[in-house]
């Protein structure tokens, strides 16, 4: 099944990339856009039929390598 992993900077971590995008948007007239946060979206094709087991494996992979817990948090979405 295709599993979606979303990794984003923690709320308390400054995101200079997001801030740069916000400024560009404001310059283009999108003044209503407040904070912008940039994250990563990873699509993993994972073998196995048991959603619980697949989720546990992918979350383990997130903790081990896909996200850095010092600055990032992750979210795993199953189909």
């Amino acid at each position: 099944m295709q599993v979606e992993v979303r990794v984003k900077l923690k709320e308390q971590v400054l995101d200079p990339q997001g801030e740069a995008i916000r400024r560009v948007l404001a310059g283009l007239g999108y003044a209503e856009v407040g904070q912008v946060r940039v994250g990563k979206l990873m699509l993993l094709d994972v073998g196995g039929d048991d959603p619980g087991a697949v989720r546990a494996r992918v979350e383990a992979a997130c903790r081990e390598v896909l996200a850095n817990p010092v600055i990032e948090e992750f979210e795993v979405r199953l189909p």
Partner: peptide
């Protein structure tokens, strides 16, 4: 060294990008 936890913290993109 930060990624393997031998030293504390993490690196973000430079303030100037």
């Amino acid at each position: 060294l930060l990624e393997i936890g031998l030293l504390p913290g993490a690196m973000l993109m430079n303030r100037t990008l």
